[in-house]
Amino acid sequence: MIARIKQIEGSRWSQQLRVWHVPDIDENRIRFKLALVADTLPSDEGIIQIEKFKQWLRSRRYSESTIVTYSEALKSFFVFYNSKAIAEITNEDVIIYNNEYILKNGLSSSYQNQIVNAIKLYFKTCRDTKIEVDKIHRPKREKVLPNVLSKEEVFKIIDVTENLKHKTLLALIYSSGLRISEALAMKPQDIDSIRMLIHIKNAKGNKDRYTLLSEKVLVMMREYYSVYKPKEYLFEGQYGGQYSSRSAQVVLQEAAQKAGIVKHISLHTLRHSFATHLLESGTDLRFIQDLLGHSSPKTTMIYTHVSSTSLKKIKNPFDL
């Protein structure tokens, strides 16, 4: 298969993504039986409206990651209706889109919810519309519990990671309950080694917060800093700038495979594990909420369903 891919003009190997890729042109789309480029783009009107929507989101100080998420979600909706004037789109069209695109392609309820968020936000800013925003219903959310690693599994992953930068990054994410975006945006001056706290700036929802700094991780960070000497961000790429989140994910997957972890995990699993282990050690749920930066206690409550402390107190009838 690789030999055949190499014969396609413009084919390339991506070291970062670790895949072969070919130019996104109609010739290759026909070859792989995909929709033509024109069929994957919104109408000219849609492109203009998406750009206006981005400007509106920026004026409301939404984060760039949220702007990308919402504009891509709106683009998906406009591509589906690229032959229909936006002013003519109705609530019935939203239902048809959900059935004929979201459900037909087996897409998740969380993705559908992103689409609904984008549609509702966009049409709130749109004067000439037949859409009744308040009558657009959200999908029923799936109650999926997060995967959580045991403490032993976490330390095994960190122990088998030999590269000092990678080891420090994984240890920091777990020990402070960070989102990957927060860890990669961190700067050396955000580390308060006197108060043993980390200042998280402009996190999700444009909120600042403080979280814990582990004494053992601080020792690792000092060793890492003396070796790598980062200039701006605490974790930087080979040529400077923020370290790639994709590279960090690859680091975790390789470490998990080396450690013999068969669970489906991501970097966010380390954050879930941090919260669950705090709860199991008796930390008040309100403090965990503050450390994680959750707006609602309902978000933090999910960890009560994955904590094993209460379940261990129950004597299994089979063992009796």
Results as ranks from 00 to 15, higher is better:
residue 200 I to N: 02
residue 250 V to T: 12
residue 237 G to C: 11
residue 226 S to N: 15
residue 254 E to A: 12
residue 235 F to G: 00
residue 227 V to I: 13
residue 236 E to S: 09
residue 215 E to D: 12
residue 207 K to H: 02
residue 202 N to L: 05
residue 232 E to W: 01
residue 257 Q to W: 08
residue 193 S to Y: 14
residue 258 K to T: 14
residue 192 D to F: 11
residue 248 A to S: 15
residue 244 S to G: 08
residue 239 Y to L: 10
residue 233 Y to P: 00
residue 231 K to E: 15
residue 227 V to T: 11
residue 205 G to R: 04
residue 252 L to N: 02
residue 228 Y to A: 04
residue 203 A to D: 02
residue 225 Y to N: 01
residue 215 E to M: 08
residue 235 F to N: 00
residue 219 V to N: 15
residue 232 E to N: 11
residue 197 L to I: 07
residue 241 G to C: 08
residue 248 A to P: 07
residue 245 S to W: 01
residue 200 I to V: 15
residue 258 K to V: 07
residue 259 A to L: 09
residue 217 V to L: 05
residue 246 R to E: 05
residue 211 T to L: 09
residue 218 L to R: 03
residue 203 A to K: 01
residue 222 R to P: 02
residue 243 Y to C: 04
residue 202 N to S: 09
residue 236 E to L: 04
residue 190 D to A: 07
residue 235 F to T: 00
residue 259 A to V: 10
residue 229 K to N: 14
residue 252 L to V: 08
residue 251 V to R: 03
residue 216 K to M: 09
residue 214 S to R: 02
residue 247 S to N: 06
residue 222 R to N: 14
residue 258 K to G: 06
residue 208 D to T: 00
residue 221 M to T: 10
residue 192 D to P: 06
residue 201 K to L: 11
residue 205 G to I: 02
residue 216 K to N: 15
residue 191 I to Q: 00
residue 193 S to D: 15
residue 225 Y to M: 14
residue 208 D to W: 00
residue 239 Y to F: 10
residue 212 L to H: 02
residue 257 Q to V: 04
